[in-house]
Each structure stands twice: as structure tokens, then as C-alpha cells.
Amino acid sequence: MADTNIDIITKLINCFKSPRYLFAISLISGILLFSPEYIINSLGIQLFISKYRIWIGIGFLISFGFWITDISVILLKKRKLKSKVKFKISEREERLENLTYEEKKILSYYIDYQTRTQRLSYSNGVVNELIYYKILYRSSNIINMDFKISYNIQPWAWNYLNKHPELLQVNPNYSVGGYL
């Protein structure tokens, strides 16, 4: 018999884990506790409330506490996620401010020609580095005879580099091996 009672209580707790159920319990018990007497009398529940007031109050406090806790946890998770995303964006923008010559050459093509797609060698380490930092992404898996694949620039990088084209300025006297 004791196990049956525990099972029932466990099922009830699991049923009311959702914040919306907790809110409903808090709302109903709050109305029962704090409504003016004329409303309680018109509903005909004055005897019920006077007999079970302590249990209604405990139910109100527990459900309200859990509901507030659940909402707080949800809000904190959202805030943490937003902060994490903001950090990642600033980290990526910082990466764009410290590009190598080869990276500038690849990215300047997108901005100079106002295109979001460029065919590059799939074995190029510089391209793979830009993919790693989520600046570029592979937009096709088709490899042609020249061993090149289409790569697109990420929208955030496109917007940032269009706002800051000076980041792509290269020293004209610098030369590099032509494996791009």
C-alpha cells in the first residue's frame, strides 16, 4: 500500500513538472486564498476554503516557488546562450581582424565581386581554416576535374566584411605561392 501511495505521488509530481501546470496551480490556489469574500461566496466554496486553507496555502507556496524557479532557470539559460553566441560572434569578428595574406585574398574575392560563392580547392588548408572559424562553408559536394568545390561565405562574415572592407587590404609588395 505504501508503494502505491509513493507511485501516485511520483506520478503527480511528474505530471506537474511543467511550468504551465505550476502556474495554473499557483493561479487557482492564489485565487482561492486572496479573492474577496463576495467572489468566494458567489462560487459557494467558502466551506471548502475554510476547511482546507492550510493545504491550499502550502500548495500555493510550493507551486509558486517551483514555477518561479523553473522560469528563472529558463531565463538564465537563454541569457547564457545569448552571451555565448555574442562571445562567439565577437571571437569570429576578431578573427576577421587578424587575417593572413592568403585569407584576405580568398575573402576579398567575395567582397570585390559581390558574390557569395567561390570555387576553391577542397584540399586548401587556408580554406579549411576559414571553414573551421565558420567564415566559409561548403555549399556543394561536387568536385570537378580541377579538384575545386563551391564555398559560400557565411552571412555574418559577408555583412561584417562589407562594413569593414579595409580588413581585406593587402600589401601589394607581398607575394605568396600560388596554390589558391
Rank of each mutant, 00 (worst) to 15 (best):
Q154P: 02
Y109H: 11
S140F: 01
R116S: 10
L168P: 02
K51S: 10
R138N: 04
S63Q: 05
V170E: 07
H164M: 06
E93A: 07
S175H: 12
L161Q: 09
I54Y: 04
K84H: 14
L161P: 07
V73N: 15
T115A: 11
D112C: 14
S90N: 14
I89K: 11
I68W: 11
I68E: 09
G59Q: 08
D70Q: 15
S108N: 11
P172C: 06
G57H: 00
F64I: 04
E97L: 02
F66G: 02
N171M: 13
I54C: 02
N159I: 01
F87W: 09
Q118M: 10
F66C: 10
S139Y: 12
N171W: 11
L76N: 15
F48Q: 00
Y174K: 12
V127K: 06
V85G: 01
I135C: 08
Q114R: 15
I71P: 03
Y133M: 04
V127Q: 06
K104F: 14
Q154H: 12
R53K: 15
I135Y: 08
W55I: 03
G125F: 03
P155I: 03
L136G: 06
N144W: 06
L167F: 05
E97S: 05
S150A: 14
D70I: 00
K78T: 03
F87D: 14
K148H: 06
Q169A: 10
G65F: 14
R53S: 12
L75G: 02
Y122Q: 08
I142K: 14
P172R: 08
K134F: 11
F147E: 10
Y133L: 03
I54F: 10
I49E: 14
P155H: 00
L96G: 08
K84I: 09
F87Q: 14
Y133A: 01
F64N: 02
R95Q: 04
L47A: 12
K88V: 13
I149A: 12
G59V: 10
V176F: 06
V127Y: 05
K148G: 02
D146C: 03
K148S: 09
S72I: 01
W67I: 01
V126R: 02
K80Q: 15
L75T: 02
N152C: 05
R79A: 06
K51H: 07
E166C: 05
K104W: 13
K80N: 15
F87C: 05
K104S: 04
W158M: 07
E129C: 08
Y52F: 12
L107Y: 09
